[in-house]
Structure formats: C-alpha cells, structure tokens
Amino acid sequence: MSALLAAVSADSDLFVAQNVFFGIIALLMIGSALKVVTTSNVVHAALWLVLVLGGAAAQFILLGSEFVAVTQVLVYIGAVVVLFLFGVMLTRASMGDDETVAGEKRVMAAVVAGLLLAVMSVALIDTFSDDRVVIDEPQLVGTVADSIFSQYIVPFEAVSVLLLAALIGSIVVARKD
C-alpha cells in the first residue's frame, strides 16, 4: 500500500484527472477486495466482489480498453457473480454471518501473501519505474475483433474448445445420478 502511494506520489502529474480517478477506484477496489477475503457472510462477500470487478472494469476504461471493460461487466458481474449467488443458494450456506468460514491459519496466509507482495513490489518498482502509459484514444472494437479472428484465431478456437469441455465437464460433475 505504501509502495503504491510512493509510486503515485513520485508522479509529477499526480493531479491529472485520470490519476485522481485511478486513486479513488483503486482504494475502492482494495477495500472491497479486503472485505471479500475477510467478511464472514458469504453473500456479502459476493457483493463486495461485484465492487472489485466493477472497479477493474473502470480501470480498463482508464486504460482505453472499452471492449474489455464491457465484457468484464457482462461476463463477470452479469454471469459469474450470479453463478456464485446460485452456488450459495444451492449449497445452503447461511445467509447471515458464519464465523466458521474463516480459517485459523490467518498468520500463515498473511505471511505468505505479504512475502509475495514484497517480492512483486520490489521487482516491479525496480523494473518499470520509468514507464508511462499514454492513452491517446480508446482501442476500437473493430481492431480487437480483427486481431482475434486473424492473428489469434488458433487461441480463439482453443478457448472455444475449452469452454465446450468445461460445459460438458461441469454437467458431468454436477448432475445427479
């Protein structure tokens, strides 16, 4: 967190509107993400997750990737979170607070996560401290589409096969027989 703030304050254009929005959204996302992993209410966690995902979509717009942002909202918030809520319902998790959801190994997990964050932060600050993202104009959907259906056609086909496999796989796993 402090590393993040340090990085932001090092930027001389701190008060450009984009950066202001970035800061607000980033704080919102971090706060919500922390709630996702700490709240003892499963439904609340799913709702906090919506905030994180929405924040990510906003970041994508800041980065000029409108199509990804829209897809993020449609797929993640529209489908994935709804799926989670269905999952909560089907597994009959308690709608209220449930103190058993958090494990007892908090210290171990925090140490591991902190270690990861430290390593990544050092590496990132060390490597990319001078790079700036300049967004002149948003990426057109047409460009993305052209690229998917020409250059990246093979990964695209692979993903479609993967989705089919996942579809069949989850039906096989979850059906009652």
Partner: peptide, 11 residues
Amino acid sequence: ALLFAGAAILG
C-alpha cells in the same frame, strides 16, 4: 500455501 511461499521465495 507451500506452493505460493515457494514461488515467492524463488521469485
């Protein structure tokens, strides 16, 4: 946890 810790240490 071991996996992530290992990755972090290697990194």
